[in-house]
Design a binder for these strands. Structure first.
Lengths: 292, 292
DNA sequence: CTGTTAGCGCTTTCAA
DNA sequence: TTGAAAGCGCTAACAG
């Protein structure tokens, strides 16, 4: 050790990796970094991996399935030994490689026990359905659903399916698709305000949409929750300080990251097979939703 | 190629790395992922590196210098060939390793031409000073400065120094330190409202602080900008849809990431030495600031 | 228990 | 142009 110190010796990681056939590196391939929900997810992964002596390499796909395939294979070809993906919709070429090379892989943000690869996440269908039921319990019958693009996003599609599944007692839901950003929320509300028969509650399938929606409603003089109730999804950091507090659905994103990392490390180290894992969510009732 | 295809051959990255002494992997060690400013920074790095055929490994330090050292060395020991750090304040142990092992390193979020390692970022001192001058131009003489922790954060300290440098004509600035989050903004405003001689303008050294501040002011019935002007720093995605639009200082974070990646790749590929690089910022005037 | 060496799979040099 | 082999720096097996 002293000699190492004085001579400044540092083991060569490539040689070690070649010899042991281990790189202790895990790849996470996510749609985007510009949505804070993915940032906290990565945070959970990173903290857990760091504790286990692993490194995290990341890539973004901008919601493109072919980019997902390319970037995943690129990271694999640079030495990643396991893969964390989003959703349960992936290019056949990628799946083929995963099976052929037996790459430990996890699909996150989704709980889908019938999917061929293990999933760790929420039951998006049920969560959205529960949100509808909650609003129904407050007396709302006409809903507007603000959501991001459904193309290449199975999580959003599942949430929408859940919404439609739970409509009852003559409830209606008008879906407004927009960009997944606060700007998207603003333009969706501009459209919302042109509706002849205006819904009494707005369910935003993401909190950033709710933020834009809230500002635009305020700008147009529509009071929350007196004139319209609004409900979010994600329970981002600012949800409770929003005025009034934003009713939202808390998703344990950081925990999902930690759990994903744990499962993969446990597989890599001990061969423990990964089971589909459902994470619990809950509705946080605050001031933006009111009884009609 | 056909044979490779049929037999499913994939080159072994560790063997290649051992032979070429290149891993094509760059490490970014940032304070936290739960601040969207770092997410967009990483995004810039990642996109650029992907285009150049490099991989990005990341680690977070939670603003601890020793964690920064530990995590940086860990990533280096796992094969990263270059390092992207935040700020110009680093543990001696880390610096020693960087020099001894001649690790290409870049310090970001700061432009500091006299620092021993190359920096790429903004002149935090000047930017904050210009913000003060802007507010002074609107007639404000009493300012409140909301800011995150100064401990282990040279960027915040530089901004504060810039503020104090530009105070003139009997201007005063009350500094309120709080958590760097929207919750921090809320508690800072609670304190602000107890001040006997209330400042007429609030300069938030980060937009997330401004968000919390804005909500809390609204909650307390203080009108923006009639009763108080408020100005942010970062120009986050929602700044222009905030009601009224948030006056803020635009920082080209994504571009900083791209630039950092380019410089490092150019050094690695062509040996081009890295020069200190200053990125331009600008004040975006919107509705939250008014002439007194 | 210490010391030696084969071998991991690639790149690159050199020989044919 | 194609083919053979040395060597990158480590780990692990094996011999002493």
């Amino acid at each position: 050790m002293d000699a190492m110190e004085t001579v400044g010796f540092v083991p060569n990681p490539a040689a070690r990796a070649l010899s042991t056939n281990r790189t202790r590196t895990i790849a996470a391939v996510i749609p985007t970094l510009s949505h804070s929900i993915f940032a906290s997810f990565l945070n959970g992964i990173e903290v857990e991996l760091a504790a286990e002596g692993y490194a995290l390499v990341i890539a973004t796909t901008d919601n493109s399935k072919s980019a997902e395939e390319d970037r995943s294979l690129a990271l694999l070809d640079m030495g990643a030994e396991a893969l964390i993906l989003s959703g349960a919709e992936h290019n056949p070429g990628l799946l083929k490689q995963i099976y052929a090379r037996k790459i430990p892989t996890l699909c996150t943000s989704i709980f889908s026990p019938d999917y061929e690869l293990p999933t760790v996440g929420y039951d998006n269908f049920a969560v959205a359905a529960d949100a509808v039921e909650f609003l129904r319990g407050l007396g709302h019958r006409q809903l507007a659903i603000l959501h991001g693009p459904t193309k290449d996003n199975d999580r959003t599609r599942e949430r929408l399916a859940g919404v439609h599944d739970r409509l009852q007692d003559g409830m209606t839901a008008i879906c407004i698709e927009t960009d997944l950003s606060s700007h998207g929320g603003v333009s969706a509300i501009k459209h919302f305000l042109t509706l002849e028969e205006r819904p009494t509650a707005i369910l935003c399938l993401s909190d950033v949409l709710a933020l834009g929606a809230s500002f635009e409603l305020q700008r147009q003089g529509v009071s929350i929750p007196q004139d319209v109730s609004i409900m979010g999804f994600d329970d981002l950091e600012w949800a409770d300080i929003h005025e009034p507090g934003l009713t939202s659905i808390h998703l344990p994103t950081t925990k999902m990251g930690q759990k994903s990392a744990q499962l993969l490390v446990d597989l890599l180290e001990n061969g423990t097979p990964i089971e589909h894992t459902k994470l619990e969510t809950r509705i946080i009732v605050r001031g933006t939703t009111a009884r009609i």
